[in-house]
Nucleic acid binder design. Structure first.
Lengths: 346, 346
DNA sequence: ACGCGCATTGACAGCGCTGTCAACAGCCAT
DNA sequence: ATGGCTGTTGACAGCGCTGTCAATGCGCGT
């Protein structure tokens, strides 16, 4: 293995000090254009790649973004990773994964990971982004983080969509399609979005002057199996809804599966709506109406936000702007994706 | 932020040199039990976590496993990550992701990533594991790697299942269920498994004395959309198969979707089988028969294999055993998962 | 011409750890 | 006792880079 070129080799070839090479690599100001060009040429010639490890050790940065997740859905995770990686690529950052353990001392485990990996910033996904204990510890040891797909605890920046508004839009769509006996499946309490989505549903119902039937509001675990379970509950009732709005696609899939099992037709006998636009929602028969969050974009924006606050060089002009602006939250637009599963009943 | 304890603090507290602490941390031999205990106590008391960056710089190792992938399915990727992370956790390794770009100089991009990230080992997923150019370059710069879910190019270790045998078993199941007019959907050529799975299918057909109808053998891209496409082709023929074995679940899903669209019943009018046991195959109605690869386990085994070859301390006894044994391949068992989609025709 | 400020560059000291090698103790066979 | 082992430990020199600060050169106002 031809050992890779070091900064020393580049410096020698360009006839400058290693510090100047370092400056060029880090895009620092105050390097004459001519010098910069010479160095860049040498870097190119030697195919030089700075060593992350050394940069990290010397500079106190790791050039790593951490992604913390717990039990997230496959497509959510992958989409998010895609977005984060896209943002990382430009700045030559790496992405390190940190899955939450199922252990009781989950928070301690996560903090340990943070200490040993020392990422420059962390992307927090629900439900971790809604976990006040975790967030406070993160804040305490001074690690930058950003919550995604959730407004978070309000203690740090976040990138998300207007969940309530989106849920309301979907509920309104159901109502407009002629459904009035609408059931709702909430998510688990530790997810802040569970409440928000439910609120949107309630708002739409109230605006339309429809009573929310408490017997038709149930809670699932955001997974397929719990969708099957709640469907059994909901559809076994003597008076049952003719539409169900599940607060995520996995549960909606479980509902459709169960509905089919007991011989119901969708949407003829039961309309179903989901939330998240997982690939499955398109692949199911019939296609599932859902709300699309721009997950990949959320990941990218969150990462860029993170890297901005860890900016290597404090830009000359604004010195007092040390902490990220308190309200650096970003709200991204969602899409209402309408498919046959919510078409007007015959 | 209370700055974390360093190896120096531990050494001072334990009353030994930092080198001895280093020995304990790395589980090196030749440290008296009593000394080891004292050091461990100090480590615990100070909540010391070694810095990856420093260890990497000094030791020439990065403590990072790289996962290279290209266009893998969500669930495959996530399952694999789960397995890799499990293996990493024990040895305090990190996982860094490296998605292949869609650019023409994909290989160059990947190699660049390797050079700058310097992972201690790389997990290669299909179709990258089947890419001879890439593998040869990896070999050339001397990075350890292991192919997963594919026998690879034969140039390095690999962890996988017997694809041919599995496909044959599924085909035999279809035949036993009474289907004889069976179509097959191949995967893209750059995936080595495409050929292997097809072979298994052919073997089963030949054993049963059934002619493979070339009109019913088509090729897809391993994704949902191509499944829809090939279904249109296959089902529009005047003489059409009454069973289709798609060489992965995503394509099988596309086929089922299209079959439903044109009003066919599954399995009454058309039996469908897939391969991979994605979550979807269980969630679809009716459930899709498929072959389960133990992806998570594959990831874990591959990672452990990798870490074994990068063993920190060369074990005294065998000095000539430098390169990993040439045939350190692991073949893991698969599961035939039978669901209603292939039940005997009425 | 002199002094000042700014832009540009380099010398140097680490960052926290590991590899190397040397030091030393304890133990055996001679 | 002598030499040669093996087992245990520490001193020290970096790994490849960045932060700090000092040195240099240049243009400007007086």
């Amino acid at each position: 293995m031809a050992s890779a070129a070091t900064i020393n080799d580049v410096a020698k070839m360009a006839g400058v000090s290693i510090k100047t090479v370092s400056r060029v690599v880090n895009r620092e100001p105050n390097v004459r254009q001519h010098t910069r060009d010479t160095v860049l040429k040498a870097i190119d010639a030697l195919n030089y790649k700075p060593s992350m490890a050394a940069r990290g050790l010397a500079g106190g940065r790791s050039f790593l973004i951490g992604l913390m997740f717990d039990n997230a859905s496959d497509s959510f995770l992958v989409d998010l990773q895609r977005g984060i990686l896209r943002a990382c690529r430009e700045r030559h950052y790496g992405l390190a994964l940190c899955p939450a353990s199922r252990a009781a001392d989950r928070t301690a485990d996560l903090m340990e990971w943070v200490k040993s990996t020392q990422p420059d910033g962390i992307v927090l996904t629900p439900p971790l982004s809604d976990d006040r204990t975790l967030v406070e510890q993160l804040l305490q040891i001074g690690v930058k983080f950003v919550s995604v797909s959730s407004a978070g605890t309000g203690l740090g920046p976040a990138v998300y969509i207007d969940e309530t508004h989106a849920a309301r839009a979907m509920a309104e769509h159901l109502i407009e399609a002629g459904y009035r006996d609408i059931g709702f499946v909430r998510g688990p309490a530790e997810h802040a979005c569970s409440e928000l989505r439910y609120q949107g549903f309630v708002e739409a119902m109230q605006s339309a002057g429809i009573q929310v039937n408490p017997d038709w509001v149930v809670t699932g675990a955001f997974d397929f199996d719990s969708g099957v379970e709640v469907a059994k509950k909901l559809l076994a009732q003597s008076s049952r809804p003719n539409a169900i709005f599940a607060s995520n696609d996995d549960m909606a899939a479980g509902i459709m599966h169960e509905a089919y099992r007991i011989g119901m037709k969708i949407p003829a006998d039961l309309a179903v709506a989901g939330f998240d636009d997982t690939p499955m929602s398109r692949q199911f028969w019939p296609g599932l109406s859902t709300v699309r969050q721009p997950i990949e974009q959320i990941g990218q924006q969150a990462t860029e936000l993170l890297m901005r606050t860890v900016s290597p060089v404090s830009l000359a002009t604004n010195d007092e702007n040390k902490n990220p602006s308190p309200d650096s939250n970003m709200i991204l637009p969602y899409d209402l994706v309408l498919r046959p599963s919510t078409e007007p009943a015959a």
